[in-house]
Simulated assay, not measured.
Amino acid sequence: MNSPGVKPVVELKRLTRSFEQGGERIDVLRGVDLAIRPGEIVALLGPSGSGKSTLLQAVGLLEGGFGGEIMIAGHSAEKSNSHARTVLRREHLGFIYQFHHLLPDFNALENVVLPQLVADRPRAEAEARAEELLVALGLGHRLEHRPSQLSGGEQQRVAVARGLANKPDLVLADEPTGNLDEATADRVLGEFLSLVRGEGSAALIATHNERLAQKMDRVVRLHEGVLE
């Protein structure tokens, strides 16, 4: 997993991010260095407000204003234009959030099909992929149910399937089970990690839960804007 010759899926060098608030400068990230290799599942640990979401936004190329270097699958993100960053996101990254953000008017299968259609995958192939993932997550009997007809744990499983639909090199997850009770969170996280490992994707998973973090391959801690 950490063989010296293997190129990282993502590499951050001296990553910084600052905000102005009330006339004061707040340094959220103060020189973050991180490399994640193919197939590696990394827990990003830190208390609320430590900058975990800001770091994920940087890796996910979701907003600007960052200093330093961001390399995604060998491509320099900070030197790419808006279109190139969109292509990098679509071809290499998958996203899972604390709140599922499923489209309410579409059923479970359709929610997992849609990002594949955006990536120009043929519909029949996209539907087969969506069904494969949802069945693997124990939702084979819920394919035609809309989000409002699903439990919280089921909704988050659909979100997991959607995040993996395009076979990303790297999955970014921001407190993916933070909105679930402990027992459901354990089950969903276990299924998520098993599926990610089976797919061969890497993952960076932000959490403030030490117990859940220990289930992953490596733990990095965000403290005062740098990784420990």
Rank of each mutant, 00 (worst) to 15 (best):
L134T: 08
R123G: 01
M216N: 06
L45F: 04
E210K: 14
Y97G: 01
D27V: 03
L109K: 15
G39L: 01
G152K: 03
K167Y: 12
V10W: 02
Q149T: 04
L29R: 06
R197F: 05
R157Q: 04
E228P: 02
H141C: 01
M216L: 14
T54L: 02
V171G: 07
M1N: 10
D120A: 14
R218Y: 06
L61T: 01
I96V: 15
V135Q: 12
A119Q: 01
R25S: 13
R90K: 12
N81L: 09
L222P: 10
D33C: 03
G94N: 11
V171W: 04
G74V: 12
H145G: 01
Y97S: 12
L93Q: 06
E11S: 14
G190Q: 02
S148L: 13
L102A: 06
I26W: 12
G60K: 08
E91C: 08
G153W: 01
G138Q: 04
E191P: 01
V135D: 13
G200V: 08
R123I: 11
N179H: 11
R123E: 14
V112N: 11
G163N: 05
A202V: 11
L56Q: 05
M71D: 10
G60H: 09
L189S: 01
L44H: 02
H100V: 01
D120F: 13
N166H: 12
M216T: 10
R25M: 14
H145A: 14
V188H: 01
L29G: 02
G46A: 06
L170Y: 06
V160E: 10
H100G: 01
G49R: 07
L139E: 10
R221E: 15
